[in-house]
Computed example of a mutant assay.
Amino acid sequence: MTPLLELRNLTKHFTMGGDILSRNKAVLRAVDGVDLAIARGETLGLVGESGCGKSTLARTLIRLYRPTSGEMLFDGDDIADLTEQQLRPYRRRMQMIFQDPYASLNGRMTVRDLIVEPLEIAGIGDAASRHARVNELLGRVGLNPDHATRFPHEFSGGQRQRIGIARAIALNPDLVICDEPISALDVSIQAQIVNMLEDLQNELGLTYLFITHDLSMVRHIADRIGVMYLGKIVELSPSDALYRQPAHPYTKALLASIPVADPSARRETAPLAGEIPSPLAIPSGCRFRTRCPLATELCAQTEPPLKDMGEGHFAACHYADRVMSGAALPA
């Protein structure tokens, strides 16, 4: 079965500093060779610390950023190097829910105008059918048709995110990229939004890339989870297997950082220490070695490939077998 979205060695680098004639400009390697496939109807979670490249990857997938190199196959077609005109048929099929519901909506436009805008750009329907579509979409996301005449500032953060979701699904897309869609919301609202996204997926057959730093939440919505560190996928696994038996020390440390109800409970693995290195100066060999308690000379010399651990579980660690055995990391 052909994946809906497949990435092959996808990179996105930014040139930093220097004047226009400078030959030795620094290169920020935000996305640095990502291989990934998302099946139709699947929810793939993408987790990692701030600064690991998750949002840059999302914006590259939606083609807000042009990839530096690599392939980006959408339904079998490589869209990595297409012009804006060539991208138009694909724009309708890929949409994005942004992290900040306050910054992602134009405060000078009414809710109706915000949701109608993509329909107008795509040339779908007339004024009457578009207004009917707005009312339908507001109902789907738990808002009332009366809300269509109001402005974004009149809503709470959770309601504004519902408006953003209604706009994202207005064109019946195949793929929706959710870039930390609940991180700016109250905890009491987060579960409501996640449940609504799951309902919409079942009703509309959507495919999600769900980006988050909340490992406790992503477990409940994602079929598979990818762990990202310094621009690369370091572990990819079915959701339950990742939590039950992580194969990368970075993943294991992230899981250890999840808050627990009993603060006196002893953790088998110490939470992650130190800060993520700069993508301007990525360490040699394994990029996690500067923070890894298992690091050896081999880790400094050779970058580990993403190897198959069985049953759809992949990890980029020289000692993944030891990590999975549960005896790899000290308390």
Rank of each mutant, 00 (worst) to 15 (best):
L5D: 12
L5S: 12
L5M: 14
L5K: 13
E6F: 08
E6T: 02
E6Y: 05
L7T: 05
L7R: 08
R8L: 05
R8N: 12
N9L: 02
N9H: 13
N9D: 15
N9E: 15
L10H: 12
L10Q: 09
L10G: 09
T11D: 14
T11C: 15
T11P: 04
K12R: 15
K12F: 01
H13S: 03
F14G: 02
T15E: 15
T15R: 14
T15Q: 15
T15V: 14
M16G: 00
M16K: 06
M16E: 07
G17W: 00
G17R: 12
G18E: 01
D19N: 14
I20V: 02
L21W: 13
S22T: 08
S22E: 10
R23A: 09
R23S: 06
R23D: 03
R23V: 00
K25V: 00
K25D: 01
K25Y: 00
A26D: 13
L28E: 00
L28K: 08
L28D: 01
L28M: 14
R29H: 13
R29Q: 10
A30I: 01
A30P: 07
A30R: 08
A30K: 05
A30V: 04
V31N: 05
V31K: 12
D32M: 04
G33P: 01
V34L: 01
V34N: 09
D35N: 15
D35H: 13
L36K: 00
L36D: 10
A37M: 10
I38N: 07
I38P: 02
A39V: 04
R40H: 15
R40T: 09
G41Y: 05
G41L: 05
G41K: 07
G41H: 11
G41D: 04
E42Y: 13
T43Y: 13
T43M: 14
T43W: 07
T43K: 14
T43V: 13
L44S: 09
L44I: 12
G45E: 02
G45N: 04
G45A: 12
L46S: 08
L46N: 07
V47W: 06
G48I: 11
G48K: 02
E49Y: 09
E49I: 06
E49G: 07
S50F: 06
G51Y: 08
G51F: 04
